[in-house]
Amino acid sequence: MSIDEVGDTVEAGTPTPVRRPADPTSPSPSPSPLSLRQWRPAAQRNLRNQWSRLLAAKTRWLAVAADGRSHAAALVNAHLSRSYIPGMDLGVLKDMPGIRDRARAKLAHKEVQCQEMLLSAYKEMVLAVSDLVKASRAMRCFSKGSSSSSLSRFADSQDDLNDSGDGGGAPVYKWISIPEFEDLAQELVEMFVSELQLKRLIVLDLLSINLKEGAGPSLEWSDELYDGEFYEFQSIGLQSGDSCPLPQNWSADVLQARKPGHSPTHEVLQVYLTSWLADVNINTNRIDEIFELVGEEMQIRLC
């Protein structure tokens, strides 16, 4: 995605010192006042675009996560109801031929439907996180074309290795530099990546319920849950080799706790639903603070 070409320059006041130094690992040379004035409008447009993408991806995540929780709850209810039928007092219905088998078959079908909808919601969550990651990595604004041209052009891809696309660490609007915007975006991304990994583990176990009852082998963490899942992970750098990493603060005991051939108990299933609802890795107050801070800096509304 290219940034609009800029044919004129926009005057800017003397840059205000940033609150934190730019990334020292690959700083751009200090640009001339003229090149900075030419760069800033394009950088501002690109940042507005990327933060709008971040907001849209966050909103999409919240919606599909809510749908996923609803599908997971329906799945758990159907599974528990089916497990209770053999010992359930059916009252006047108890003498109807095959009533228990038919009821169990309908509930089993309901489970399969819920699993399909849950998997669809999970896929949308992966795509939302992918959008978050891609937007967080597209905030830099690089000069394009000849420096002798009267037309200043910019894009989000790097041609000149000496141009890091950060304006030499200068503020893009009033206070915040490109690296600082990137740090804020990365803070958001890390929350949603960790939460996606947690929800993937829950989805993995909920998709394995019928398999654990003899319909086939249980799914493992290294299995692809839907076609193209691992490709999406690789495209945004969330997968290394043949395994999808767990959050850094998790241990291998989490996966070892999954018992092959055993369905999760009623209590465990309730923990899954509670964990899903809680979004334990997502600090909503901090997310609101970040979008409010960025919106104030850009003088736009991000909510």
Rank of each mutant, 00 (worst) to 15 (best):
S263E: 07
R19F: 08
V112Q: 09
S251A: 12
P247A: 12
G167D: 02
G295M: 01
K58E: 05
D159M: 10
V6K: 07
P86G: 10
N49I: 13
L269T: 03
F154P: 00
R20H: 09
G168Q: 05
M139W: 04
P33D: 14
V268Q: 14
V64H: 08
Y272T: 03
L206Y: 02
T9D: 14
T9S: 14
L238T: 13
L277W: 02
S147W: 14
V172T: 04
M139Y: 04
D253Y: 10
E116W: 07
E289K: 00
A128G: 06
G91I: 11
N46G: 07
I176A: 03
R153W: 05
E224V: 12
D89I: 13
P217F: 11
V172H: 00
D159T: 12
F142I: 02
I85G: 06
G261R: 08
S30P: 14
F192C: 00
E5N: 12
V193W: 09
L161G: 10
D160M: 08
F181K: 02
F233P: 05
D163C: 07
D23P: 01
F291T: 00
G168N: 05
S147A: 13
Q186C: 04
L198Y: 01
N249Y: 10
S30D: 07
E213N: 10
P15M: 11
S28D: 06
A42V: 10
P17E: 07
P171N: 07
E224P: 08
R20G: 09
E11Q: 15
A43D: 03
I236S: 06
W276M: 04
G295Q: 02
L207Q: 05
E195Q: 07
E111P: 03
A138N: 12
N285K: 01
D163P: 05
V294Q: 00
D8E: 11
L207D: 00
S275N: 14
V268F: 14
P21Y: 06
R82E: 11
P21K: 14
T25S: 15
P21L: 09
Q299R: 15
A105L: 12
K134H: 13
P86W: 09
L269K: 01
I99F: 13
K110F: 07
Y272M: 06
A215P: 04
V129C: 01
L184F: 02
V172W: 05
E11K: 11
R69A: 07
D279L: 00
F142V: 03
L196S: 04
N281W: 09
D166M: 08
S218V: 08
A78D: 10
P17W: 09
P27H: 10
D23F: 06
D242P: 08
M96C: 06
G98P: 01
R82F: 05
N77C: 08
E124I: 04
Q234T: 09
D156L: 00
P21R: 09
S177C: 00
L47H: 02
D166V: 04
